[in-house]
């Protein structure tokens, strides 16, 4: 009796451990779908369109990974997470990727055992106020009520910024961007603070955009990027090279329009050949990807510039720091060799 129970427990344990150890790529392929954790709703980054389909810059990244691994960008299941629940959801295996305005920090990387695979958006924290408030600088916000999303770097930066400038404030904590908008509009808080990208997205959804302004101060560095669980290097490599492939596409002028054409011919720039599967890319088989992986990504989703322009230009977001290095921005990717 007892040994039987022990045996059962042991098998359960082994089975469980086994399922953890199986490669993420195998799991995704076996399921035929990629599980991707995104925002609860932030226009431009991840928000359902009028047909209920998720759209946005972060959504496109999920699609790109699906295109590379499954050959079809539409094979994605989306799971939403608030700032608070995202890491728990990722750790619990509710998704293979967390693609949700997530700032790369030391403790998240090291202590929370996540792997940040790169930066797809360089951001910084800003403040938005109604113009009627008559405030021109964040330094004038002493005593204000400030809406913040909990479980974010935002709330830690805010505490440090106000303390550092000898100012007091009244934090009004909320869970999602949608709630924050409601409270801000109702006047529960004087200021809404979050990543500048989030402020632009929020402003975009307002009817009376002209009544609000973003203050000039940017009080933090927020390198945002996709996150995967620690421990599966193959998967981390796949996800990071999908991001680089999209940026390489922009760098080399490969777009969703011309990618098929470029893939078919022998290009003078051999890096294009290697990226698009014309020439062999050493080690690609170790990633378990087929030679047309990047073609799938760029043809179905587009290069970095294309998704940026599609989703973020309407919010009046400029490339700025998010331009490629050769255009004066910060995106500089290792060579495809």
């Amino acid at each position: 009796m007892k040994t039987k129970i022990l045996l059962a427990a042991a098998t359960a344990g082994v089975m469980f451990a086994g399922s953890v150890l199986a490669s993420t790529l195998d799991d995704v392929r076996a399921r035929g779908k990629l599980n991707c954790i995104i925002n609860t709703g932030l226009v431009g980054f991840a928000a359902p369109d009028d047909k209920g389909k998720w759209q946005g810059f972060d959504v496109d990244f999920c699609r790109a990974v699906a295109a590379a691994t499954l050959g079809d960008a539409d094979k994605v299941n989306y799971t939403t997470a608030t700032g608070k629940t995202r890491f728990t959801k990722l750790a619990a295996g509710e998704g293979e990727i967390l693609s949700r305005n997530t700032t790369w920090t030391f403790s998240r990387d090291v202590d929370l055992s996540q792997t940040f695979i790169g930066v797809n958006y360089y951001d910084g924290q800003g403040f938005m106020v109604p113009k009627a408030l008559g405030v021109k600088s964040a330094k004038e916000l002493d005593g204000a009520s400030v809406c913040i999303q909990t479980g974010t770097t935002t709330e830690l930066n805010l505490a440090e910024y106000f303390a550092g400038n000898g100012m007091k404030y009244n934090p009004v904590p909320i869970e999602t961007n949608a709630e924050a908008q409601e409270l801000y509009k109702a006047g529960r808080c004087d200021v809404y603070t979050t990543d500048a990208s989030g402020l632009f997205a929020t402003l975009y959804s307002f009817d009376n955009k002209a009544d609000h302004m973003v203050l000039p101060e940017v009080v933090s560095k927020e390198p945002l990027g996709p996150v995967v669980r620690h421990g599966d290097d193959q998967w981390a490599d796949i996800v990071s090279w999908v991001l680089r492939a999209m940026m390489a596409g922009e760098e080399k002028g490969i777009t969703s329009k011309n990618v098929k054409e470029l893939a078919a011919k022998d290009n003078k720039d051999k890096e294009i050949n290697r990226l698009l599967g014309k020439d062999p890319l050493q080690g690609l088989s170790k990633l378990g990807l087929s030679p047309d992986w990047a073609v799938n990504v760029i043809s179905q989703v587009g290069n970095y510039a294309e998704t940026f322009e599609k989703h973020l230009y309407p919010l009046t977001i400029q490339r700025g720091m998010n331009a490629l290095y050769k255009d004066g921005g910060l995106h500089y990717i290792p060579p495809i060799k």
């Binding site: 469980f16 451990a17 953890v20 150890l21 750790a91 055992s113 909990t150 709330e155 830690l156 805010l158 505490a159 440090e160 106000f162 404030y169 009244n170 934090p171 009004v172 904590p173 669980r229 620690h230 421990g231």
Partner: peptide, 20 residues
Amino acid sequence: ALGKDLSFEFLFIPAGYDIN
């Protein structure tokens, strides 16, 4: 499997956030 351990040391580090 997640590379975590049960530890209560975090209780004694600065919280870093404000409470209203």
